[in-house]
Simulated assay, not measured.
Amino acid sequence: MYTNVGAQPGVPRPPTNPQPNPFGNAFYGAGSGLIRGGLGAYGEKILGSSSEYVQSNISRYFSDPQYYFQVNDQYVRNKLKVVLLPFLHRGHWTRITEPVGGRLSYKPPIYDINAPDLYIPFMAFGTYVVLAGLSLGLQGKFSPEALNWLFVKGLLGWFLQVMLLKVTLLSLGSGEAPLLDIMAYAGYTFTGMCFPVLGRIIWRYSYYFLMPWTCLCMGVFLVKTMKRVLFAEVRSYDSSRHHYLLLFIALAQFPLFTWLGNISVNWLF
């Protein structure tokens, strides 16, 4: 009804389309842009930092599984020589690093003989189970249940070796070594374990010569590895404690090898 009323004399007509306030819109646009930009940057910072934190912790404790299977025939031959004949290894025991993405990373096993791998431990573990089953068959005691128990016994021995190395690192104040590294070093136990079991199959008395030798070689290999590789980043270094722990690792191989080398249907002996 008011739109049809004309302009009264002496009374100014109000504008039908008021002009927008440039300052208000400017402040509103700038403020909302700042808020959106600030919140976005803050969110990206939080998400980015959390993602980097998770990735760094995963790589620190678990690393990349594909790294441990980058091997070839030459590496396998040379690595077996180092594990079974550590006294003849004339090179250094430290791992080789290379810059990747602005950070130092270790070279894969195919380029570094001192790098840990999981190919040899898994193959050696499978060979150990097969030889154990063959030994039971020659004794007339083979059964699927007995083979299953030997398989579990081997896994338990691997787990005990991992715990031995892990607890040793924790006792020195450094438990940051990747878990797969420790699993690889502990898994080399079955590389030496296969020879006494095979020797018993071929000639029973050879077991008593091969078992002490493989225990000694594995002890030396782990001592060299722990000293040059895993202990390299220990923050709190105690020389006397360091040597006692290394000696304990070497001596612990004898009961472990004796237990794993006793192929029988008895679980404990």
Rank of each mutant, 00 (worst) to 15 (best):
S236W: 05
Y53N: 10
N78T: 13
V130Y: 00
S143R: 05
S206I: 12
E52A: 13
M226S: 09
K227M: 06
F142V: 04
P9T: 13
G37C: 08
G140S: 08
P12T: 12
S206A: 15
F159S: 15
F221A: 00
G102W: 08
N266Y: 06
Y237W: 11
L84A: 07
P15L: 12
M211D: 04
L164T: 10
G43P: 04
A177G: 09
M218E: 02
N148Q: 12
I35L: 14
P196S: 12
F195K: 01
L260N: 04
K227R: 15
F87T: 10
Y53E: 12
I58R: 14
P14I: 03
W203H: 12
L80P: 04
Y75A: 02
Y68V: 04
L180C: 11
S206C: 11
L34H: 05
G10Y: 07
Q139L: 05
T127F: 02
L170F: 10
L179P: 00
A115M: 05
P22C: 07
F23K: 12
Y68S: 03
L251S: 14
T168K: 01
L268C: 06
L136H: 04
F248Q: 07
N148T: 12
P116K: 01
L131R: 00
L169R: 05
Q74V: 13
F159G: 14
G31N: 09
Q66A: 14
F195V: 10
F231V: 05
E52L: 14
Q139R: 05
A124L: 02
Y42A: 15
V130C: 06
G40V: 06
Q70A: 07
L156E: 10
D117I: 03
N266P: 04
T258D: 08
S56Q: 14
A26I: 09
L170T: 11
P108N: 07
S50L: 12
M1V: 08
L39M: 12
G173V: 09
F195H: 02
D64A: 11
G137E: 00
E98I: 08
Q139H: 06
S240P: 05
M123F: 06
P99A: 09
K166C: 08
R228H: 14
Q74P: 04
L39C: 10
Y207C: 03
W259M: 10
R60Q: 15
N25F: 10
G154T: 09
D117Q: 05
N25W: 06
F125L: 14
I201F: 00
P65F: 02
S206Y: 03
G101F: 06
I202P: 06
M226K: 03
I182C: 06
A30Q: 08
